[in-house]
Structures are given as structure tokens and as C-alpha cells.
Design a protein around this nucleic acid. Structure first.
Length: 976
RNA sequence: GCCCCGGUAACCCAACGGCAGAGGUAGUCGCCUCAAACGCGAUCCAGUGUGGGUUCGAAUCCCACCCGGGGCACCA
């Protein structure tokens, strides 16, 4: 890119860089993209904006990477910027800002790898990212940029945690309520503690103070629980289910994960399962993402059925009324339940195991674990076996079923027969009740197990033919099922449901796959919990006035170094080493006392659950966000009329209720984790009256990935992209042939292209234009550095049509454009408006190139460009390439920024052609094209078609069976 | 195994069920240049993954299969 001989004012990389720097400075100095709030500190200028519709455009929260940006990162940011600029010109009050998700494992791992303190590393990384993003010319409101690591931000993250901790889910009211309401209900006797919170069902009045606290704690939406969790020694921390891959490894770092019982903070997201599922219908989201959330929540309709443990249990204090509750989606098959299985960790196992094997026990039932030992020892041995399995082993595909007979029997309440109870690890403690009725005739897993352990198989649904092998999962008439016989599955389910209720043996039930959210991490770089423990060991929320609980400075912030494969190691939170920080003196109203702080930190997802709310009111010291400001930006202010026609089936009023960010753009990788957690927090905040909308993100759009080619040599090693040559379609590295593949841009494929290089060679506007032009925003597409030149040439041609490359003089005249060019302009305006509103920037750009090609001809013919075309052209291009836009606008003699200029309007009259071309088909094949007046009647159109020589020749002597005339489209003659 | 998304020219991508091409890249040929690069102009290139079906008419709708990408996966 040397410009030695080039004209001084050619649009080159050098000129582009000058222009870009200039306008970025202007925007910053003139506060061009400051979006006024209706009230408060950031409300300056609202008087002018108050009659505009508002628009809240949001990008998914980036974490400041240590390696800087590559050209794949800004794809979405450019897309939202173009859309935001377009809508700003369309008269919206647009809020667009970007902050940094700076806590969490990625930042901390990077700090560890580079030997820096996380805060130092984070600050450096944010600065780098700010510089790279500023150079892109994004129209963000800089006042609203926050980082999760700012003390003034995480103060409110902690405050929200306290809100969650201080509330419970009122199932009858179907919403979260303050915990003080619950205590009041207990005190006044309106309500008694029930369920798991009070397993012994003792009346509130009989409980001592400590027990009351414990009972209340079990109601909270944030609670401590000892439960099997995902322990990842390689990261030194526990992880949420959502952070563990299907292979049983950590999402981050790919270390092995083990199940280990530990006392951890949990958030009761399961209380919201139904609402998280149902409210998806209110959202304008891509169907695949909704589907992924539905799958993750995993609503399952069925019945719970209680199986009494048969009477010959010979444990010391066991009584016969003990029963095992199972969940099944196929209660209609209960007559075929020939055995039961408990998860190995099921609490009832210990109470049902007899001292000796029943006389009827076959050797096969004892399996490899029960030979020559008592049932108790067999169970213990099996539990050891199951506990040692890593998640990966336990879930391995095609793994043979294992298990052992417990020696106990249960009674099938329908057949009254005794059926054996096994334990086996194919039943998971965390789902349903941790116990199943096994129906081998209609379930593949049960069939496999029954075959192996030689358990009877009873079919209760007739397979389509008598020779049918294996379990039959399809529909058919019930058999061997007494009063259900002959019914199909649906009818049988209905009837058995009634029977269960009538006989007190069970009831229809709904179960979810979703588990509560494991919320503690044993790492340093996260928000400290606003929790302290007294002498009684019970947790208390730090009073709001004492927030934030600041993260202590630690010389050594490392997690304990552990062997990634050591399943029996224990987590050791770094904060436990902050001795002076650890103790706090707090007065909870009973005088100042000493308390110990919680040493776990929050997971990375905490800060990203509500960051968009802080963008709205970043300086507020009295609340996380002002109610009026929140209501202004978060209400459903769906951007002007016609643009995105409803993609979902629900009505506008329902969608209005949901509210939320008007456009949220990000990658599919957050389909479950972030989007589910953020929805959950938002619903809690809504229930408690802190936000006005039930959903945080109204319209979601998934941008694609930019993929890049990578090359492997014959050994399969990745080679440096820069040194690969292409010859005749083959690729070579140092003369050796290499194979090409495409993947996400990144270190591992050595195929990173940085925006800095593209800025240098072409300028940011060219990069923006290229990224928007490569394809639809929601599609993944391969990066191709050689293709960029096309966009650069386009800008160069456009520039040349407006500005003389040598003198810098305008080449624009006030003479009217010719009619054809004017019509093209108006067609372009109409198309570009539509395309931009639907985020179809690639086709919008194609239209602009087309118009510019026309303009180039006009300039060649007349020596000047008509202003009536140039000005709208510049305005239409400005959202895409704002620096060139502003520069040309200024050179056209316009004084102020074009950021608030109205987007060009088209004249509908000019979209209508006087004369149109109509293809004429004979038997579906195009045989001629005729020119006819635009408004022609069908009859006249047909007559004109028949009058064409070629058509007349073809119709000569043939029988016309049918004539299809599509007005304005075509004529088709069907002949015999 | 199940569920999504996608296969159009050498490449990236357009095309309300109605003439397969809007645009860009690469290639080829010119112009410009002492020459090259940049620039400018022209031009070549597919019947839409495969096989059926619906229709006057299918890239578009339906069915099956193949290929690529993604998600879920012992969830009772």
C-alpha cells in the first residue's frame, strides 16, 4: 500500500486513517453519542429527545481478552453499531454502550499464565480493547461503560445477591417474596414450615431460635447445601452443571470433573423453571435458542407413584409403611414394572437393605458385587465402584449396565406382586426422585438391565407384530394391564392417573431437568459474597450500608495447585488466606460482634446477569438503577412500525408485557448459560419490584462466527498461515502439500487476523464494510483477506465521484439528475431502509454499490455528480462507514455531524415503472419477453403476449389448454 | 442415536412459487505506465448436494437420502 504516485486525495489507507482519527476525536469531544436519560445525572439533552421513541441496543458483554481482538470479535459490535446509527437517523433516542465482563476464570487464568495480578492484567486488557474498539468508530455512549470489577459496580452485584438471599419463592403466589413475609406468616401461625425445609413437620411454635433460622434458611432463594457437586481440581474450583461439557470436563481448560459432596451456595433457579419455560413464548428470539433453553429446562410430564417396601424387611426399626416414590413419564406401563432401581446415593438404600439375602435370591442378581458377601457389603462395594467413576466414565456411550440387588422388595401397587429393588448407576440421584420403576418391556435401558440380570419382562403395550424384538416404545393398545387393556398410551395415562389419585398411590406430576445453580467458586478473581458467619455457624447477609465487601488485596491469589486428576482433593479458597479481611465486626442490632466472612467468590456469570441495567444509570449511588430510567429504556418500545414483522406467534400485547432490551446481539454459545441465568435474576428482581419487565432481552439475534482457513501438513500439524502458498487450487507450505480446513479464528489454529493490520492496510471503514458485506449477519463465513480490497475499491470510487483526487474540489453539481438515475436512487433508498431494519447489511451494501456504479457512469458522462443523488448516498452509507460519511458530508458543505440527519426517504411514485418487461412462457419455458405499460390489464397483457411473433408462431395450430396471467409478473400458455 | 441450521459459478454470497444473478473476490483480455503496483474498462464462469413428489411453473413447498456446522444424549 504505497501511495508514492497516487493522487494526494485518493481514498487510500493513509487518508482513511486520517479521516477516522479526526472524526473519532470529534465524536468524543462533541459528545455525539451521549444518549439522554429521562432524569438524573445523565439527563442533559432529554428535552430534545423526549418525543422520540427510545431504542436500547445491546451487545453481549465482552470479557477483555489478554491477547487482544481478532477480526472475528467485532462482527456483532459493528452490526449493532450500524443498526443503532440507522435508527438514530430514523429519529430514535438510541442507547448503545459497551462494558467489560472482567471478573472470572478467563481473566484469572490469563493473569496466572502471565504472572501478573488479575487487576493489573484486567486493566491492561481493557485498555487494549478500548483502543482497538475506538478505532472501529463505534457510536457508544462512553459514560455508560462499566466493568464488573469496578467496586462501584460489584457493590450492586452484591446487593442483588442479598435481595436473592433475603427472599423465598411463594408457590401459591407464584413469585418471589421477601423472607420477612415468610417469617411473619410463621409467627402469626398463618403458615407452617413444610416439605424439605421441615422434614419432621414440627410446628413453628415448638422450634428453638436456631432451628427456626435453619428452617427459614432452607426457604431462601440463595441457600447453602451439602450436595454432590462438580469438583474440578485442575481449576481448583467447583463448577455449575452448565459449565461441564458432555464429556465430563470443564468448559474452561478442559480438565476432568468429579462428583464430590461439598457444602456450597446454591441459587433456587428451579423455582422459576415453569416461568422460564413459559415466558420464552413472549420473546422474539431465534427458535433454535428457545429450543435449547427448553431442552435444558427439560420439562417432563408424568406421574409419581409410591411403591411400598414389602414387609419382610428385617432392619431394626423399619416399619412396613415405608415406601419408595418414583417419577415416570409412562405411568400407563406400571403393570409391567418388574423391578425397581434406586440411585446408589439414594438415602433410602441404608434403611431397606436386610441383613441377609432372601432365600429366593438368584446368583445373577448379586452380580459381581454380591458374591460371598452380605447385601450390606454388596451395596457398599457397589457404591464405592460407582463413586470412583468419573463423570466421563459414567456417561460413556454403550457402557454395559451395572448394579446389584439390595435384598429388599417393593410391592407393585397395581399387580400386588413383590418386585426386587436394585441399585444401579444408570439411575441418577439428581433427576426426579432418584428412583425408578423399571419397565423393561417399554424402556431400552430397563430392557438391557433386565436381560443382564435375568429379570422377567412383561409387555404392557402390544407391539405391531408378534415377532417384535426388544423394548417397544411406540403407541399401541395396552395389554397385561387389567383395566387399562385396549387403551392407547394417552388414554391409559389418563385412566391410571385417576386410579393413582383415588387409591392414594400417586398423582400426576411435572419434573424438570434443570437443577439449582451452584453459585460458589473457590477462586480469587470474583465478587466476594456479602455474607458473614456468626459463632452459630449460620450465614447472615452483610447490611446494605456496609456494602460493598471489597475484594482484599492478596499477594498470592493462586488457587491451591492440585493434580487435575486427583478426585479426592479438596478446594481451598484463596480468600481464606486474607487474614485481616476474614474477620469483621458487625452490629446486627444485638450489639457489635465478630463474624467470619464467606471465603468463596461468585461465578463469572453473576456480573453479566444485570450489566445492561447498570448501563442505564451507571452513576447512581442510591440504587442499582433508578426506577424511572429503567422503565423508560426497558419497556417495549419496539422500534418504528414496519421493520421486523413478528417472527413469533404471540400477539403484540403479550410481547409488550415481556419488555426488555430492544435488540440483543451475540453468539449462540450463550444460549443456555448466560441467557438463562440473566433471565432468572431478572425475574427475581421483577418479583421484588426492582425492575418493571418480566424479561431482560426482548429481541435476540445471533451473529455468526467468522471462520478462518487453517492448514495442516501431512503429519496433521498446523502450519503458519502466512507462509502457505496457493498454486492451481492446491496449497503448499515450504513446497509440501497441506490440507485446508475452516475453524473459529484463534490461537490453536494459528489463523488469527487482527483488526490493527486491517486498519493499517485499508482503514476501519473498509473493515466495517467488509465484515457487513461477507454475508448475512447470522451466518458463519470464512474470512478472506483478499476479498477486502473490493470494499476498499468501492469507497475509493465513491470518494472519487464526490471529490477530485488531485485538487480536493467537489465534483458535485446542483443540476438535476436524469430520470433513470433518480428512479434508481429511490429504489435504492426503499431497499436499503428495509435491509437495514432487518439487519441484512450485505444486500444493503450491494444496493449502494449498484447505485454508485450508476453514479460513476453519470460522472463520466457529465463530469459531475448530481447533489440530489450524492447527499442521500452519503447518508445511507454513513451507518456502515461513519468516518467516510462524516467527511464527505462536511465536504458537501454541511456543518454538523450527520449522526442525527434524517435517513433518506423515498418517493413511492418513483418506484413505479411506466413500462415493465414481462416474460412469456409456453409450457413453463420462457420463449419471449415483451414490454408493456405498468398498469396493464390481464386481458391486454395476454393479448400483447399473443401478439409477440415468437409466441404467435409457437401457438400456431396448437390448442391452448390454459393461460396463466400473473399481473406484473408473467404470462404462461399451456398447450397440448 | 435424537433435535436444529445450512448445501446456488473457482470462492464469498443474492434471488415475494414466476426470465437463476444484486454485489464482491479470483481468473482472462484490454487501457494507463519506461516497467510494476495501484487504478480504470471489458469478459468468462452455475441450472441450484442426490433421488422422488406437488404445481401450468420449484433454488424456493413436501418426502427420503448424502455432505458440512451446531446442540442434546442412561433425564425414567
Amino acid at each position: 500500500m504505497t501511495d508514492n504516485a497516487a493522487p494526494a486525495l485518493r481514498y487510500s489507507a493513509r487518508l482513511a486513517n486520517e479521516i477516522e482519527k479526526k472524526w473519532q476525536d470529534v465524536w468524543e469531544e462533541q459528545h455525539t453519542f451521549w444518549a439522554p436519560n429521562p432524569t438524573g445525572a445523565l439527563s442533559e439533552g432529554f428535552a430534545e429527545a423526549k418525543d422520540k421513541p427510545k431504542l436500547f441496543v445491546l451487545d453481549m458483554f465482552p470479557y477483555p481478552s489478554g491477547t487482544g481482538l481478532h477480526v472475528g470479535h467485532p462482527l456483532g459490535y459493528i452490526g449493532t453499531d450500524v443498526y443503532a446509527r440507522f435508527q438514530r437517523m430514523n429519529g430514535h433516542n438510541v442507547l448503545h454502550a459497551l462494558g467489560y465482563d472482567a471478573f472470572g476464570l478467563p481473566a484469572e487464568q490469563y493473569a496466572l499464565e502471565t504472572g501478573q495480578h488479575p487487576r493489573t492484567a484486567t486493566e491492561t486488557n481493557i485498555a487494549t480493547m478500548r483502543r482497538q474498539l475506538r478505532a472501529l468508530g463505534l457510536g457508544h455512549d462512553p459514560r455508560r461503560s462499566i466493568a464488573t470489577t469496578d467496586v462501584s459496580y460489584y457493590r450492586w452485584t452484591q446487593w442483588i445477591f442479598v435481595q436473592i438471599f433475603e427472599s423465598w419463592y411463594d408457590v401459591e403466589a407464584d413469585r418471589a417474596r421477601p423472607i420477612v413475609d415468610l417469617v411473619a406468616d410463621f409467627e402469626s401461625g398463618i403458615r407452617e414450615p413444610v416439605g424439605e425445609a421441615n422434614p419432621e413437620e414440627r410446628p413453628w411454635a415448638d422450634l428453638d431460635e436456631r432451628t427456626r433460622c435453619e428452617v427459614v434458611n432452607r426457604y431462601r432463594l440463595a441457600y447453602l447445601e451439602e450436595a454432590p457437586v462438580n469438583w474440578c481440581p485442575g481449576l481448583g474450583t467447583v463448577l455449575a452443571n452448565e459449565e461441564v461439557t458432555a464429556e465430563g470436563r470443564s468448559d474452561r481448560g478442559n480438565f476432568p470433573v468429579f462428583k464430590k459432596p461439598l457444602k456450597q451456595w446454591m441459587l433456587r433457579i428451579t423455582a422459576y423453571a415453569e416461568r422460564l419455560l413459559a415466558d420464552l413464548d413472549l420473546l422474539d428470539w431465534p427458535e433454535p435458542i428457545k429450543l435449547m433453553q427448553r431442552n435444558w429446562i427439560g420439562r417432563s410430564v408424568g406421574a409419581s407413584i409410591r411403591f411400598p417396601v414389602a414387609g419382610h424387611v428385617q432392619t431394626i426399626d423399619q416399619t412396613i409403611d415405608q415406601s419408595i416414590e418414583v417419577f415416570t413419564t409412562r405411568p400407563d406401563t406400571v403393570f409391567g414394572a418388574t423391578y425397581m432401581v434406586l440411585a446408589p446415593e439414594h438415602p433410602l438404600v441404608d434403611t431397606i437393605v436386610p441383613a441377609d439375602w432372601p432365600s429366593s435370591t438368584s446368583a445373577g442378581w448379586k452380580g459381581e458385587f454380591g458374591v460371598d458377601v452380605s447385601p450390606r457389603d454388596a451395596v457398599t462395594k457397589y457404591r464405592e465402584f460407582a463413586g470412583k467413576q468419573s463423570e466421563m466414565e459414567r456417561q460413556a456411550e454403550g457402557r454395559e449396565k451395572t448394579g446389584v440387588f439390595t435384598g429388599a422388595f417393593a410391592r407393585n401397587p397395581l399387580t400386588d406382586g413383590d418386585i426386587p429393588i436394585f441399585i444401579a448407576d444408570y439411575v441418577l440421584m439428581g433427576y426426579g426422585t432418584g428412583a425408578i420403576m423399571a419397565v423393561p418391556g417399554q424402556d431400552e435401558r430397563d430392557w438391557e438391565f433386565a436381560e443382564k440380570f435375568d429379570i422377567p419382562i412383561v409387555r404392557t403395550v402390544a407391539p405391531p407384530d408378534d415377532d417384535f424384538e426388544g423394548p417397544y416404545l411406540g403407541d399401541g393398545p395396552a395389554i397385561n394391564s387389567e383395566f387399562l387393556d385396549g387403551l392407547d398410551i394417552a388414554a391409559a395415562k389418563q385412566k391410571i392417573g385417576e386410579w393413582l389419585v383415588e387409591h392414594g398411590a400417586g398423582e400426576p406430576t411435572v419434573t424438570y431437568r434443570l437443577r439449582d445453580w451452584l453459585f460458589s467458586r473457590q477462586r480469587y478473581w470474583g465478587e466476594p459474597f456479602p455474607i458473614v458467619y456468626g459463632d452459630d455457624g449460620l450465614p447472615r447477609a452483610v447490611p446494605a450500608a456496609l456494602l460493598p465487601v471489597e475484594l482484599p488485596e492478596l499477594e498470592d491469589f493462586r488457587p491451591a495447585t492440585l493434580d487435575p486428576d486427583d478426585a479426592v482433593s479438596d478446594p481451598a479458597p484463596p480468600l481464606a488466606r486474607a487474614e485481616t479481611w476474614l474477620e469483621a465486626e458487625i452490629d446486627f442490632g444485638d450489639g457489635p460482634k465478630r463474624y467470619l466472612r464467606e471465603t468463596n467468590t461468585m461465578p463469572q456469570w453473576a456480573g453479566s446477569c444485570w450489566y445492561f441495567l447498570r448501563y442505564l444509570d451507571p452513576t447512581n449511588e442510591d440504587a442499582m438503577v433508578d426506577r424511572e430510567i429503567e422503565a423508560y429504556w426497558m419497556s417495549s418500545g419496539v422500534a418504528s412500525g414496519s421493520e421486523h414483522p413478528a417472527q413469533t406467534s404471540c400477539s403484540n400485547s403479550e410481547r409488550d408485557q415481556a419488555g426488555g432490551v430492544d435488540l440483543y446481539v451475540g453468539g449462540v454459545e450463550h444460549a443456555v448459560l448466560h441467557l438463562l441465568y440473566a433471565r432468572f435474576w431478572h425475574k427475581v428482581l421483577f418479583d421484588l419490584g426492582h425492575v418493571s419487565t418480566v424479561e431482560p432481552f426482548h429481541r435476540l439475534y445471533n451473529q455468526g462466527y467468522i471462520q478462518a482457513p487453517a492448514f495442516r501438513d501431512e503429519r496433521g500439524m498446523i502450519v503458519d498461515l502466512q507462509e502457505v502458498e496457493e498454486r492451481a487450487g492446491q496449497h503448499f507450505y515450504k513446497g509440501e502439500p497441506v490440507t485446508r480446513e475452516f475453524g473459529k479464528m484463534g490461537k490453536s489454529l494459528k489463523n488469527v487476523v487482527t483488526p490493527d493490520d486491517i486498519y493499517r492496510d485499508y482503514g476501519a471503514d473498509t473493515l466495517r464494510l467488509y465484515e457487513m458485506f461477507m454475508g448475512p449477519l447470522d451466518a458463519s463465513r470464512p474470512w478472506s483477506t483478499t476479498d477486502i480490497i473490493g470494499m476498499h475499491r468501492f469507497l475509493q470510487r465513491l470518494w472519487r465521484n464526490v471529490v477530485d483526487e488531485d485538487s480536493g474540489d467537489l465534483r458535485v453539481s446542483d443540476d438535476a439528475a436524469d430520470d433513470e438515475t433518480r428512479r434508481l436512487l429511490h429504489r435504492t433508498i426503499a431497499a436499503v431502509r428495509d435491509d437495514m431494519a432487518e439487519l441484512k447489511f450485505n444486500t444493503a451494501i450491494a444496493r449502494l454499490i449498484e447505485l454508485n456504479n450508476r453514479l460513476t457512469q453519470v460522472v463520466a458522462d457529465r463530469g459531475s455528480a448530481p447533489r440530489e443523488v450524492v447527499e442521500p448516498m452519503v447518508l445511507m452509507l454513513a451507518p456502515l462507514t461513519p468516518h467516510v460519511g462524516e467527511e464527505l458530508w462536511q465536504r458537501l458543505g454541511r456543518p454538523a455531524t450527520l449522526a442525527y440527519e434524517p435517513f433518506p426517504e423515498f418517493d413511492p411514485a418513483l418506484l413505479v415503472e411506466d413500462e415493465i418487461e414481462i416474460p412469456v412462457q409456453v409450457n413453463g419455458k420462457v420463449r419471449a419477453t415483451i414490454r408493456v405499460p405498468a398498469g396493464i390489464s390481464n386481458d391486454a397483457l395476454e393479448a400483447a403476449a399473443r401478439a409477440d411473433e415468437r409466441i404467435a408462431a409457437l401457438l400456431e395450430g396448437a390448442t391452448v389448454r390454459k393461460v396463466i396471467v400473473v399481473p406484473g409478473r408473467l404470462v404462461n400458455f399451456v398447450i397440448a
